[in-house]
Design a protein around this nucleic acid. Sequence first.
DNA 1: AGTTGCATCTCGAGC
DNA 2: GCTCGAGGTGCAACT
Lengths: 233, 233
Amino acid sequence: MAEPSPEEVCTIVRQGIEQNAITTLFGRCLVTYSGRAESELGPGDRHVMLKPDGTALVHTDEGHQPVNWQPPGCVHQVRVEDEQFVLESTRSSPDETLLVRFESVVHAARFDGSDSEELSLSGTEADLKERILDEPEIVEPGFTPLATERETPAGAVDIYGEDDDGAAVVIELKRRRVGPDAVGQLNRYVTALERDLHADATVRGVLVAPSVTDRGRQLLSKNGLEFVAAEPE
Amino acid sequence: MAEPSPEEVCTIVRQGIEQNAITTLFGRCLVTYSGRAESELGPGDRHVMLKPDGTALVHTDEGHQPVNWQPPGCVHQVRVEDEQFVLESTRSSPDETLLVRFESVVHAARFDGSDSEELSLSGTEADLKERILDEPEIVEPGFTPLATERETPAGAVDIYGEDDDGAAVVIELKRRRVGPDAVGQLNRYVTALERDLHADATVRGVLVAPSVTDRGRQLLSKNGLEFVAAEPE
DNA sequence: AGTTGCATCTCGAGC
DNA sequence: GCTCGAGGTGCAACT
């Protein structure tokens, strides 16, 4: 197929944007970004996707993540400048601009389609929560959940309940192996709740996750917190 | 352009994989994922990209993120099954499989290219660190940086130094507005260092970021930590 | 619009 | 390989 001219590319992309299509481009380009940070990308062959919701994605031949992008809600503009096809995608709050300047465009196409389906996903933290609420003895025999998302001055606790002795228990759930950050999070909730309740109240903190790192375990014991192994299943 | 047959699509994609090209598809498909979690996606029109590094991306017409994907390092296999083009992308450790079954394929193409350029990015936390090291008085007059990435039992401290009085100072840097998590992180480092040094040693903790949330500020004061406003610039 | 925490987070650096 | 934290994180839920 012959390489489309910058003007032809401009027309294809403009129509794609107007018709709420997914528009894709492939070619040699320079990419400049300015907004929350600043970036420059020298010449190379990349794939660009424009979505009808205002998303822009620039992909190289490597990696899961786009090398540059613009989030949903942006306005895409196209023009021919110095005989080159130029895409400019902008938004405000925050002010951000993505500029893609093509030396050559090998491919430009519009794709119309419909997609009404929602992704159904399992194995999330919410699934682990359901599991614990269904079988509280996974945490320990005698544990009774009293609330989920209970608010504390430090944030909402995943599961709040009490143990066999009536002591308050704060549970932090993670769908995967945890490290220091999750322990710190649990500790924040526990100390916040201890200050919130009476001074003499004991609040236990239990981290429920598939596993812990060494450092995570050290921080747990240093803070008098506990760990229970469990997976979302 | 006529719609390619499943066999034709299979050939195009197989060649793309063999030739280390970026391969793209657009059409009506079902997507199943199984691995770290499980997901199902009913029929709809989506864009699929296969990269030579083993990445697979399935994009709907909305959102920055792919609705399904497979990370770099996966093996892509293609076949025709029940007169439908099927893509299966797998990896081990962890075992993960992405299955895309196309009812129809509107577009299939290979793109060869080269990209030797690295993204140059500024406005990162590393830039903020350089700024503080260049002008320590941004933190406060008399502050002297002594080390970066200083190790503590709780992790590495961004900048470690001492103030005018010779007291130890731990600095945590963030390139953007901070909340409870960053405060918790700083607090972990401070308490770890207090136990590491002599019992009577005072360790100050300073969070350096463009701004703080209310809850973040409350947690700072509750833990006796400080805040200094600064941006990467 | 701002806050908070999850994510199949991804990615890179260090070990 | 695992660990740890940054990210232009994105994203949804909630205020």
